[in-house]
Amino acid sequence: MSEVIKITTPLSDEVVDSLKSGDQVSIKGILYTARDAAHKRLIDLLDHRDELPFDIKGQIIYYVGPTPAKPGAIIGSAGPTTSYRMDPYAPRLMEVGMKGMIGKGNRTQSVIDAMVKYKSIYFAAIGGAGALVARSIKKVEIIAYEDLGPEAIRKMEVEDFQAVVVNDTYGNDVYKEGMNKYKR
């Protein structure tokens, strides 16, 4: 495997453009969580020209719905959820400044095209390794939509959050590249 590239949020266009599909990254800084229901609400706000509950410029949205924290723990298990369900919403968020998404699984072509247009990166974390991923989360605060339970928007402080670049700003896709390499 290639060397791990350290990146810190918020992401600049320069950092985003330097990343290539297949790169292993270690993320430090703030991640905002949102999944199905929260995305719907964020888009409703944009439709009504209202302000989002957080400044999305340069930020990464992590597609996750964690388990409840045990007493004394910061968070429960917190691995990525499948990303394609957020495909109908993702280009709108890129348009207003979102620079990265973390999830797992393939994106539709229109989302990959939007990543090129708006300079945004799609990262994958290891799906199903929720107990392991949780170790890189140092602080968690619910900042919106508490009524959504696991789907509430959380502000997470992470250190050495491991992920791989799936789609870069040049239209590449590690899923296709990886598959072609090992196809028989």
Binding site: G65, T67, A73, G76, S77, G79, G130, A131, L132
Partner: peptide, 21 residues
């Protein structure tokens, strides 16, 4: 390797191996 490590953490700390329970 990561999945084996994840399983060990989950079993030893009695936490869910995956957030989607």
């Amino acid at each position: 390797s990561a999945l084996l490590k994840n399983q060990n953490i989950a079993r030893d700390e009695q936490v869910p191996m995956c957030q989607d329970t």
